[in-house]
């Protein structure tokens, strides 16, 4: 199988969709030229598709969000890059109030097929305005889909699905994953939105996660295998609307749940997933649900302080040990 970096797989998915549909276009700040965005995701696209389909803009997130809604409502498929996930606060109205409500409030007459891509990078020294996490904000947005891939394979398949989807998609990338390598087939494929993926089968405990958390969970599973604990890793892949059947099935099998995610713990993704399990699967549980999540603290510009608030594989291991004790 062909090996590709996450960033290259993601880009390949967008290129394929731009070749397939002339109404797909990219727009954002410094996404053109040879660099192609601060993380190089759109590198080389301007060369192939030209300035009319890879559109450079000023630092104007509000207009970018509005442009996405307007272009989508009038029949094109915009893909917007917002440089950092923490800057998604600047497009909350456009995503939540405008895009999220449009299909419903138009009486099911105006679909809004737009993608806003952005990048979360909480494990880097860049302070609270660059390293925040807004995942939970968009989980609380009816009409919006929130897609967060964890592997090169999923990144490509999900960006293709997101671009083809007729609803607004917030597509969160986690920066530590850009250089991650993995299997990506040569032939075309789509990863459907709304379907979770069992990244590792296990029978004692389910770790429900997404994005970079998947890799913490996989590492923890390997570590705990040595101790005879069998960990199942459930990658949500789509956080809204999330795959309830997959959760029900896995919880019924393992009876123990850890939810791990990089965002802030309080009111985060884990709160929703835990509440869902409590409502619908409580009789399957043999232990309390544990959350391993970021502390409710703005991200400092200091490596040592970041260590104190962020989470990693070790925290997932500790949580699982606690459940198995």
């Amino acid at each position: 199988m062909r090996q590709m970096k996450f960033v290259d797989a993601l880009r390949e998915g967008m290129i394929e969709e731009m070749r397939r549909d002339p109404d797909v276009f990219q727009i954002g700040e410094a996404i053109g030229g040879m660099q192609g965005g601060i993380f190089g995701v759109t590198k080389g696209l301007e060369e192939e598709f030209g300035k009319d389909r890879v559109i450079e803009t000023a630092i104007s997130e509000g207009a970018l969000g509005g442009v996405a809604v307007g272009a989508a409502a009038f029949g094109m498929r915009p893909v917007v890059e917002i440089m950092f996930g923490s800057l998604m606060t600047l497009v909350v109205d456009e995503v939540h109030n405008q895009a999220g409500s449009l299909y419903y409030v138009s009486g099911g007459k105006i679909p809004c097929p737009m993608v806003i891509r952005t990048c979360n990078w909480m494990r880097i020294i860049s302070g609270p305005h660059h390293c925040g996490n807004l995942d939970a904000t968009f989980m609380n947005s009816p009409g919006v889909k929130l897609v967060i891939p964890s592997t090169p394979y999923d990144a490509k398949g999900l960006i293709k699905a997101s671009i083809r989807d007729n609803d607004p998609v917030v597509f969160m990338e986690y920066s530590p994953l850009y250089t991650l390598k993995g299997d990506v087939p040569e032939e075309e494929y789509i990863v459907p939105i709304g379907k979770a993926d069992i990244k590792r089968e296990g029978k004692d405990v389910t770790v429900i996660t997404y994005g970079v958390g998947v890799h913490d969970a996989l590492g923890a599973a390997e570590e705990l295998e040595k101790e005879g604990v069998s960990v199942e890793v459930l990658d949500l892949r789509t956080v809204l609307p999330y795959d309830k059947d997959a959760i029900r099935k896995s919880v019924a099998k393992t009876s123990r749940v850890v939810i791990t995610y990089e965002g802030y713990k309080t009111g985060g993704i884990g709160a929703e997933i835990a509440a869902f399990i409590a409502e619908e699967c409580i009789e399957d549980l043999s232990a309390p649900i544990l959350r391993v999540a970021g502390k409710d603290v703005p991200c400092p510009s200091n490596r040592r302080l970041i260590e104190g608030i962020s989470i990693g594989m070790k925290d997932v291991v500790d949580a699982i040990r606690k459940l198995m004790a």
Binding site: F25, I27, D52, I55, G62, A63, L64, G65, G66, V67, A68, V69, G70, A71, A72, A73, F74, G75, M76, P78, D93, E94, N97, Q98
Partner: peptide, 14 residues
């Protein structure tokens, strides 16, 4: 918000 949306429509119109 109509200004941003109209500007998006402008890309389609072009």
């Amino acid at each position: 918000q109509q200004w941003g949306i109209a500007t998006g429509a402008g890309f389609v119109a072009r």
